[in-house]
Design a protein around this nucleic acid. Sequence first.
RNA 1: GGUCCCAUCGUCUAACGGUUAGGACAACAGGUUUUCAUCCUGUAAAUCGGAGUUCGAUUCUCCGUGGGAUCACCA
Length: 480
Amino acid sequence: MQNSVKTRFAPSPTGYLHVGGLRTALYSYLYARQNKGIFALRIEDTDQKRYVEGAVESMQNALNFFNLTWDEGPIFQSKRTEIYMKYATQLVEAGHAYPCFCTAERLDEMRKQQEANKQPPKYDRLCLNLSAAEIKARSEAGEAYVIRQRIPQEDLFFNDLVRGEMKFHGKDIDDQVLIKSDGFPTYHLANVVDDHEMEVTHVIRGEEWLPSTPKHVWLYQAFAWTPPAFAHLPLLLNPDRSKLSKRQGDVAAEDYIKKGYLKEAMINFIAFLGWNPGTEEEFFTLEQLVERFSIERVQKAGAVFNLEKLDFLNGHYIRAKSIEDLAALVKPWLEETDWFSKTSFTQENFLRFLASVQMRMKTLTDAAPMLRPFLLDELDYDFNLFYSEKMKVDKTMTVMALENSIPALEALEDYSNEESIKACLVTVIEKLGVKNGQMLWPMRVALSNEQFSPGTFELIQLMGKELTLKRLQDALDKIR
RNA sequence: GGUCCCAUCGUCUAACGGUUAGGACAACAGGUUUUCAUCCUGUAAAUCGGAGUUCGAUUCUCCGUGGGAUCACCA
């Protein structure tokens, strides 16, 4: 009796992978891997109107990017229509479903009426008791019809892995359309049939499915199939606590990739939206999550998708990268710029520059602007940066700092460590009788043309004698 | 409106019915630093309200309140 676990991720191909979908996929993946089970991918493309070209590829790419690899599929529901039809027919014969000839117009009218009377919108079962002869006659006459599920008018209980026992009233629930008039199944039928045929043991999905779960459970009962275990995940929320939507920020997983977030950070961040290990540990790799994840610890309440923590995690994972790995990650962003192709530098220098900038990167996109002053042959100075009231630096002071530092640094031989550079410049500072900042601030700007950058000594060491002197002289010439 | 779900710092969350209600992010204040960042230290910040059960409720029950989801021939 190996009760082997099987989970699945079943998106509909209406666009890109949503971050909420990413979390659902992640939890399903974790649960399957943790139990040495199977993680399957299924594409719910039963609505021809909503199909988006390229969506399937885009979703698979995104899942692969995050290393959420699947063992089975993708299975396409659109290729299985006969199967659903077969099962629907079976339900009709057993009295669990019935054909319905009501037109869209009649249903609209009915709903308007119900709304006017403040009744809940619900199919009135006009076609529930049509005689076999009438059904035959009308369908042969070419009248379009759907197949509806006959919902039992009784209470239903089922267990949810995150919420415990659920109770619904059959009389409140609508007779769901199972087969549309175009012959395609709706989500409800296809979902149940596929989960059964694929032998899915755990259905892990978003909370928005909770209200339709009784329909699914009744379908399992009608077929006399054992239902899978259900786990409904809390929603991801906008800052105003409504369901996460495009209106209020980026919702596509790939948007975050494009913004320079690391997959490690995304996974760690997403995993903690609705789950935590119960300890004070906060950094988890995918492998560690596989080890530690548990549905029992999944939160019931929705979680606001708040990016501040993601920024923090991203910075953490960037700093944890080896400099070679970071260089590879950063390369595409540099190549996108209009200046990168015109620069020349040694790989060794590049790695040194990158290392000095690593500490202050929040996303991979930060690399290009931060590296630019190191890589460019000549800087286009913003003179306002030189002068600082707080530092007590004006034009005269700047010129003085540059004029005096250049000969001193020219005489200096040892650029291999900050100490010798510091010693050299401190001598100059003492000779001039100025404050450290008055000397070092304009030098730092001359070297970097940045408001925020590594320290002056570090910059000089990183750039080496030649580039340092070139920069200082260039700045002096331009400022005078 | 019907049905259902949910409720601890601003945010993510921890707490066998017994804790000074803990941690992280963010914020703020210091230290390190010529700037920024990193790093370190500290401060402020929460149990939605009311009953009940109990010697004792963040925790259990009920009622409110608030928020959310869902009610298609979409998933």
